[in-house]
Amino acid sequence: MSSQMSEQIADTAPFGHAKHIRSWGNWTALVLLVLGAVVMLFPLVILALNAFKTTEDYNMTGPLSFPAHMSLEGVISFWNTTDFPMKFANSLLISLVVSVVGVLLSVLNSFALGIGRVKGNTVILLFIMLANMVPQEALLYPLYIMFKAIGLYNTQWSMIIIFTIIQSAYGTYLLSAVYGTFPQAILEASTVDGASRWQTLLRIVLPISWPTISVLFVFFFIWTWNEYMIPMAFLMSDSVQTVPLALATMQGQHTMAATDLAAAALLSIIPTIVFFVFFQRKLSQGIVAGSVK
């Protein structure tokens, strides 16, 4: 009866046709949502508008007008004074190593916890959950003392070590749940074929869980790239700082002209936006899979 009814509905209002019947309400919703998106985009548009203005132009006409003529002054000055390529290289090095090693550790941990069911795995997972909840402020000062003591304070290595571990705690939490439900039949088949633990991990578990792993990789990269508090407390010298730190340092000097700051901010977000465009699909999968963070 009900299937008959839905067939009837399908007949009278085929889906493709319904799409084109747009009520006033539909249009209102669209207009409101577009307006909302404009508001969201407004700061970035204004920023881009002023990044290419001269300071005189800005002082004359304010932030809301189009530039009288294009000027790369601000961009070039930020590029040179902060040595942008170096900051970019620092951010890239830190984020890349953290995401590769962080994923590696997550996989090894999760293999032992989720598939190996190492003794005490629930207690270990509890500690790992704790590690994920703790605010970085509670680790900050002891880490500061530790890294000063071993001479790695004010180096990229300090960031690589700290964030590899912090991200791997999250990765382990997520991935060990995935491995806990890994199809038993596949694992058994692998043993029957005479594969060792290591071979099973490499040839069976890794390829099958690759979608989750790649999402973790993208997220570890972005999170590390975006970190602020610990890098700010640890990276004192200009030569080891990251892109967000370079911008923050610049903004801290209060005399900065509005256009120079706009240009600097615009340059700082370009790598992130490029990354966003490239990995948009992976990102939206990941936010959903990993919405525990």
């Binding site: 550790l105 941990n109 032992a112 916890l113 190996g116 190492v118 703790v134 571990i165 791997s168």
Partner: peptide, 16 residues
């Protein structure tokens, strides 16, 4: 499986 767990666990112990 303990050897698989050791590097990561030592890290979390030391850093967190």
């Amino acid at each position: 499986f303990v050897p698989y767990l050791l590097p990561g666990l030592i890290g979390i112990f030391a850093i967190v």
